[in-house]
Computed example of a mutant assay.
Amino acid sequence: MAQRTLGRSAVPVTALGLGAASLAGLYAPVSEESAAATVQAAWDTGIRYFDTAPHYGLGLSERRLGEALRDKPRASYTLSTKVGRLLEPQAGDGNDLANGFAVPATHRRVWDFSADGVRRSLEDSLTRLGLDHIDIALVHDPDDHEEQAFTEAYPALERLRAEGVVRAIGAGMNQVAMLTRFITDTDVDAVLCAGRYTLLEQPALASLLPAAAERGKSVIIGGVFNSGLLADPKPRATYNYTAAPREVLGRALRLRAITEAHGVPLRTAALAFPFGHPAVASVLVGARSSAEVHDAAEQLARPVPGALWDELRAEGLLGADVPAPQGA
Rank of each mutant, 00 (worst) to 15 (best):
L129I: 05
P233G: 04
N99S: 05
R8F: 02
Y241K: 12
V11F: 11
E315C: 07
V176P: 05
G130N: 08
V139Q: 06
G170L: 07
R246N: 05
I136H: 01
G222M: 01
V39S: 10
A41I: 02
K234I: 10
A272Q: 09
A301V: 03
I183Q: 06
A37L: 01
P274H: 14
D116G: 09
H107M: 03
Q299T: 03
P235R: 13
S282W: 08
R254S: 08
D295N: 05
D189R: 11
D143W: 11
A296W: 00
A301T: 02
T242L: 14
S31T: 15
L86C: 11
D232S: 13
M173H: 01
A261G: 14
A243I: 10
L18Y: 00
G25E: 10
C193T: 02
L255K: 05
A194K: 02
R128P: 15
T259W: 09
P73W: 11
A281H: 01
R74M: 13
R167I: 10
E32S: 15
V293A: 08
R85K: 13
W43G: 10
L65I: 14
A115D: 14
T184A: 09
A2P: 14
V219I: 07
L300E: 01
L6T: 01
A68I: 10
D189A: 12
W111I: 13
R64K: 09
E247H: 08
A231K: 00
L229I: 09
S22H: 08
R159C: 01
A168H: 01
G117Q: 01
G228I: 04
R8T: 03
V13W: 01
T52F: 00
G94V: 05
P245L: 02
A177N: 15
L60P: 00
A320C: 02
L317N: 08
D51C: 07
R8D: 10
R236F: 13
A194V: 14
S114Q: 11
A212H: 11
G276L: 09
P54L: 00
Q299K: 08
I134M: 07
V283F: 08
D189Q: 14
E292Q: 15
D112Q: 09
G170R: 10
G57M: 01
L26W: 15
R64N: 14
T45Q: 07
H133Y: 15
D51R: 13
L129D: 02
Y49Q: 04
E67T: 15
